[in-house]
Design a protein around this nucleic acid. Structure first.
Lengths: 242, 242
DNA sequence: AAGTGGTCTAGACCACGGC
DNA sequence: CCGTGGTCTAGACCACTTT
């Protein structure tokens, strides 16, 4: 099923790409006419783009292309996209690539047999040429049988998963803990031993729920900070039982 | 302006509170009839409750009360609500309360004059009786002139702000950094010196944009972890220019 | 006053799950 | 098959901003 609001959303994204941040997009009623859909459908499409941070609505004024936000950390984006949004030029240096049996821990994370092989790659991630994070990727070899180190150099892994293997990521869960760098990490990141850092662990899944990747990243705490825009949650006020 | 979908949402929340997690709520069309609104309005209300994590939709089956989620950390909730969602009994011990001039840093955070007075309270936050975090609250004294230490003991600060001062929080921005505990923090939290920890800094604003509070919290990294459910963001794929 | 986004209606038909 | 949520329409009126 092709949802019209997805199609409209994609067309609006095209419009946005030719506009400067802060520029207004055409009024909703004009988009209705242009795309031959109802206003509800246009609004639904724009709603999503607003939630994703591409557009800002202003009641009575119009809808505008967002200026790049500092915030918006916890949507499922790639390192590169995250860095670009923060105003850095992303880079990457592959430290090691190997194929190995998953082992107990990783098997649990990827929901495969401990003896099943995984593709493992460790990369130093750069922002403006400076080390920002160390990232270790793990994917079941079964789903990416011919993935090589070279594949990681140029293309986005996620685009590659989609184009070569037909794998589309649908959801993920990420945990974040504070930690300090150990000797190896300190050296690679160029920071003193025991510098505060973030430890991210993420499992990404296909739309059907199958685990695709487990990523463990250590981010320098002196250069990387999470920023979240908060909105009040409905309070679900506990009341005295009747 | 009273928005109907807010009213409907509140009524659905009432329904939910009398149901067990996993139970189905009435079908959308029945809610339309019961509340005398259109289906769009009911859906809009339910949409928000789903986003907030109270309900789960299942196409073709129904809409169900969510089982408590571990995740969903970065919505604007109070410490107590956050702890309850994580399955702990929240507690609090007030360490100090004072009124003092804001000073340069805090003045900048709260957007007031450096000489303006602020209400400052430092609390040890407990989960199941064990220390979890140290939290320092700052509010401009001008907007909470008669706030006392006792006020913090029983009621939720946010409920108090609303009921006594008519202040409703509308938005906020929180930054999160990794850090390690210093001597004082280690002692209060009962952890070794230089234990990894989260540093949260939050500025909350009224719906009109005026800053209401600046909160600085240090959370034990050995007991507290952030969990986020991720959803793919539209990729905004960079294309070759035409 | 004109133009924008925000809310709402009363329908329609489709897709999915279970009987 | 039926009942559920998912999408979509063609309008209406309201609230806000700008002229």
């Amino acid at each position: 099923m092709i949802r019209k609001y997805d199609a409209v959303g994609a067309k609006v994204i095209e419009l946005i790409e030719d506009l400067e941040p802060g520029a207004a997009i055409p009024p909703e009623r004009e988009l209705c006419a242009r795309f031959e859909v109802s206003r509800m459908t246009v609004r639904r499409a724009i709603d999503e783009l607003v939630r994703e941070g591409h557009l800002d609505r202003q009641h009575g004024r119009g809808t505008f292309v967002s200026r790049p936000k500092i915030a918006q950390p916890l949507t499922m984006t790639s390192f590169s996209e995250d860095m670009r949004r923060r105003g850095y030029v992303p880079g990457s240096r592959t430290l090691s690539v190997r194929r190995r049996p998953a082992g107990a821990q990783l098997a649990w994370r990827l929901e495969i047999s401990p003896s099943a092989k995984v593709f493992e790659a460790t990369r130093l991630r750069l922002a403006d040429e400076q080390p920002m994070a160390i990232e270790t990727l793990n994917l079941p070899l079964e789903i990416v049988p011919d993935l090589t180190a070279d594949d990681l150099v140029n293309a986005s892994l996620y685009e590659l998963l989609e184009s070569r293997y037909g794998i589309v990521l649908g959801s993920g869960r990420q945990t974040i803990e504070p930690t300090v760098t150990d000797e190896t990490e300190s050296e690679l990141l160029g920071v003193p031993l025991h510098t505060p850092a973030f430890l991210f662990e993420r499992t990404s899944r296909q739309t059907d729920g199958a685990a695709v990747e487990f990523v463990r990243s250590v981010y320098r705490g002196d250069r990387y900070q999470l920023v979240a825009d908060l909105h009040p949650s409905r309070s679900m006020t506990p009341r005295t039982k009747r």
